[in-house]
Simulated scan of single mutants.
Amino acid sequence: MRFQPSKPSLYGMSPDQLVAFLKPAGFPAFRAKQILDWLYRKRVASFKEMTNLPTALIEWLDLNACMSPNSVLLVKKASDVTEKLLLEGEDKSLVETVLIRYPQRGVGSESSRKTICVSSQVGCAYGCKFCASGLAGWKRDLTDAEIIAQFIHVARIEQERDASRPDQSVPFDNIVFMGMGEPLANYDNVVNAIRTLNAEWGLHFGARRITVSTSGLVPQIHKLADEPIQFRLALSLHGATNEVRQKIMPINKRYPLEELIPAVQAFSDKHGRMLTLEFILIDSVNDSFEQAHKLAQIAQSLHAHVNIIPYNRVEGLPWKRPNINRQMAFSKILKEARISHTVRKEKGHDIDAACGQLRLQTEKQRQA
């Protein structure tokens, strides 16, 4: 389903596109640069705050464009200072954005390293058996403006908390496209959002601190490899053999490991960046020692880092996380194989931070 907003958002427009948007109304080209500065450097919430624009232009923008294509409906903060934003689009669609803080030794939590996890679709069509994002199915793709707005909302919230922060600084350290939806199924909008994030006229955020996660869409991975921006790729593997992966990831039937691994290798060869293999560890599903050994072989062949993620329980799904001893034993096998890996510490459990949970809860409340 293609969503058509009532007014175009300026987020995602390049300088040339913004000049072309303003030109029929008779506004000079230099106004585009001023507007972009207000959007991405000062991150204002309304056109009226763009104080160096003439009144006629502000009024014209109010009539013909929208500032933000979505709004913050709810903010939930966990005891570990993980934070989840629930955003509502013009059509009442709900998506989630998560801000994850990683405390650094000797540094307060508000100043710790921050990663923002953004959504690319409303729901998901790929039906991974362990994920809440696809429980209600796929509704539509997010526009590039709706993707970009997620960063702006988080930046404004962080700026309000720390008034001493310079306007032009970006208040997060890493970006991951690992929220609701399959990013590569919304390829054009995701890539355009990344261009805007990376551009000097945009957020000017370093591409090497941007990671795109995929469940394994092989043709799009090959296409992504040809993109010139040097962002990172993460593969949601979650099963080290076809037999195990197909139990929890239907996409594997279409693109089995024999096709997927070479595609990921091709991306790595062209971009020269270390890959990340995401592996959600589920009790009695993929936590066997055989899976650990197979995973080590794949990681070694790809020279990849493995991110082990103990399963974060989702209401309505039967899966559970392995106990801590099983997690440690699984990790030990990777360590003995000299595989770079981390066991992710659970974040945001008390606010149901796993993708899609807050959205589902809110939609159920609306229906009730």
Rank of each mutant, 00 (worst) to 15 (best):
A136M: 14
L334P: 01
G127W: 01
A56E: 13
S14I: 03
S340C: 09
K270C: 07
P5G: 02
A145Y: 00
V98P: 01
G272D: 10
L235R: 06
E259Q: 15
H349T: 03
L18Q: 00
L74V: 13
K76W: 04
S46Q: 02
V212C: 05
A199T: 11
E96N: 06
I229L: 15
Q367M: 10
V191M: 15
E146C: 12
G179P: 12
W138C: 03
S14Q: 09
N252K: 01
H153D: 12
S331P: 02
W201F: 12
M50T: 04
F130A: 00
S120T: 14
D226P: 01
Y11S: 07
H238F: 12
A296C: 09
F21S: 01
A304M: 03
Q246R: 15
V244Y: 04
N312H: 14
K253V: 00
N307M: 07
D269R: 04
D91F: 02
Q297G: 06
K33C: 02
C131K: 05
R344W: 07
E96V: 13
H222Y: 14
H222E: 13
D16G: 01
N64C: 09
E90H: 07
I147V: 11
R113K: 15
S9C: 15
L360P: 04
R338E: 15
N312A: 02
A45L: 11
D269K: 04
S46E: 04
W138I: 05
G89F: 01
Q4H: 15
G106P: 04
A29Q: 01
K347M: 13
A20Y: 08
R232M: 14
F267C: 07
R338D: 05
S133Q: 07
R43W: 07
R101W: 01
N64I: 02
V107N: 01
G206R: 02
G356C: 13
F130L: 04
H271Y: 09
K129I: 05
L85D: 06
Q327R: 06
K114W: 07
I251A: 00
T196R: 13
V170E: 00
K347E: 06
D283R: 15
A78G: 10
F27A: 02
Q327I: 15
Q104H: 04
F47Q: 06
D287V: 11
F3K: 07
G272R: 12
T82M: 09
T143H: 01
S119H: 02
A29I: 00
M67C: 12
L275R: 12
G181K: 08
